[in-house]
Design a protein around this nucleic acid. Structure first.
Length: 417
RNA sequence: GUGAGUGUAGCUCAGCUGGUUUAGAGCACUGGACUGUGGCUCCAGUUGUCGCCGGUUCGAAUCCGGUCACUCACCCCA
């Protein structure tokens, strides 16, 4: 560390080491298995796309597009952006492949990027795992997606989570409501930000946590009172099906999402224990988006889970790895025998960590202990000579001398090493 | 983008109303007590451009300014 060359990771990013990755891999495996049960298959898309893909889908006047995108020009001057979310990418890929036939079910997992001030549960590079169901208009599809989300959280063993549900209606209802809300707020003076939101994107006012604004919001008109007959029926059906399948949910008439493309059903998952209003997963229906991105009119619905927020609240799996530790004492001849043994063991699917340093047996056992090895194989001059090895059970400090030729059988006999 | 707090050994931190001297503790690490046997105990040892740059001063880890980074909150969102 003498050299003045230390380079740190970029702001808002983090490194993952084996200890933490145990949880990640566990959570990811459960998600993939579960998605499979519902017929979803993985897609992988580039982590950068044409900038316009995001400004058109997410909405020009959202914070994400206005100030949080990692946008750059390539050598030919094309404007590209590191994806801030994946839905638009998945649609783009789906359309580009020309696969607009019938229903499609995709899931994805990968890093997303938003230039934002880092904070608890908020990073500049963060991971999302999510699903997209294309070509399903029926409220039963909404129900299935929410059921899937609920199922996932149960399998992840999250103790307490709440699903908040709302409906924004179709483009017509949304517009009607927007007008009604705007009219309601006309004579009311709100906080500085809300005054700006009023002009640019009225629905955002509902998210304001300012107590003064909140008191007005409580009396504000509700979206659900502005739904057309079709949208209203759709929402009723979604709730009916959720009740049928016994999926618990709370209605929140002021839940709007940060992305403009949502229509009808929207939902978020919260952990009330945190006391903080941070969503750990969210999603909804977006019946117009595929068309807006150049496809045929195709109803669709999906959700995304923030993995960092999930992992932070997860216990994860129990069992740890326990490699067999090979301790060796002394000279070159023993070292060579150890190297050969290690390879033989590995070929028999036994995890091995071999010590090659000339350290005391004491320190080797110490290290084996730290690495979580349940068994240690010891070879010294005497064992080398006699063609044996000492198999030590770390738990009970019992050890037996075994012949090196029956080593594999003996170790498998002992069980999980 | 706005605000607040923090930056001292690998880790957690003490010292910080300027001068006790060579900047400390615990954990970790290495060795020994136990000459080829971990987890407990005891002993010894190693480790630092006191985040970086500049200023005030006879003298700065300590005060001031700037800068960078981290943390938290606002904002926004998963």
């Amino acid at each position: 560390m003498q050299v003045d060359m230390k380079i740190n990771r970029p702001r808002g990013t983090y490194d993952l080491f084996p200890e933490e990755l145990i949880k990640w891999q566990w959570a990811e495996r459960i998600a993939k298995e579960t998605f499979g049960e519902y017929g979803f298959s993985e897609v992988r898309t580039p982590i950068f796309e044409a900038t316009e893909l995001f400004s058109r889908s997410i909405g020009k006047f959202t914070d994400i597009v206005e100030k949080q995108m990692y946008t750059f020009r390539d050598k030919k001057g094309r404007s590209l952006t590191l994806r801030p979310e994946a839905t638009a990418s998945v649609i783009r890929a789906y359309l580009e492949k020309g696969g607009e036939q019938g229903s499609e079910r995709f899931y994805y997992l990968g890093p997303m990027f938003r230039y934002d001030r880092p904070q608890k549960g908020r990073f500049r590079q963060f991971y999302q795992i999510g699903v997209e169901l294309f070509g399903a208009a029926h409220p039963a599809a909404d129900c299935e997606i929410i059921f899937l989300l609920n199922d996932l959280f149960q399998k992840w063993k999250l103790k307490k989570f709440e699903i908040q549900l709302n409906s924004l209606g179709c483009a017509v209802c949304k517009e009607k409501y927007r007008k009604a809300l705007f009219d309601y707020l006309k004579g009311i003076s709100l906080c500085k930000e809300c005054e700006a939101r009023k002009q640019k994107n009225v629905l955002r006012v509902l998210d304001c946590k300012n107590p003064a604004c909140q008191s007005y919001i409580e009396k504000a008109p509700k979206v659900t009172d502005y739904l057309c007959d079709d949208c209203s029926l759709h929402f009723e059906k979604v709730k009916e099906y959720l009740n049928l399948l016994k999926v618990p949910y709370n209605l929140d008439s002021y839940l709007v999402r940060g992305l403009d493309y949502y229509t009808r059903t929207v939902f978020e998952v919260f952990l009330p224990e945190l006391g903080k209003e941070i969503a750990i997963a969210a999603g909804g229906r977006y019946d117009n988006l595929i068309e807006e991105l150049g496809g045929r009119k195709t109803p669709a619905i999906g959700f995304a889970v923030g993995l960092e927020r999930l992992i932070a609240n997860l216990d994860g799996p129990e069992k740890k790895k326990s490699p067999l530790y090979l301790a060796s004492l002394g000279e070159e001849k023993i070292l060579k025998e150890t190297m050969k043994l290690a390879q033989r063991l590995r070929r028999n699917k036994i995890q091995v960590i071999a010590n090659y340093e000339a350290r005391s047996l004491k320190s080797q056992l110490h290290q084996a202990d730290r690495l979580g090895s349940k068994f240690v194989l010891i070879i010294g001059p005497k064992e080398l000579e006699e063609g044996t090895a000492i198999l030590r059970d770390m738990k009970g400090s019992r050890q037996t001398v075994i012949k090196r030729e029956n080593l594999i059988e003996k170790i498998k006999e002992v069980g999980k090493v």
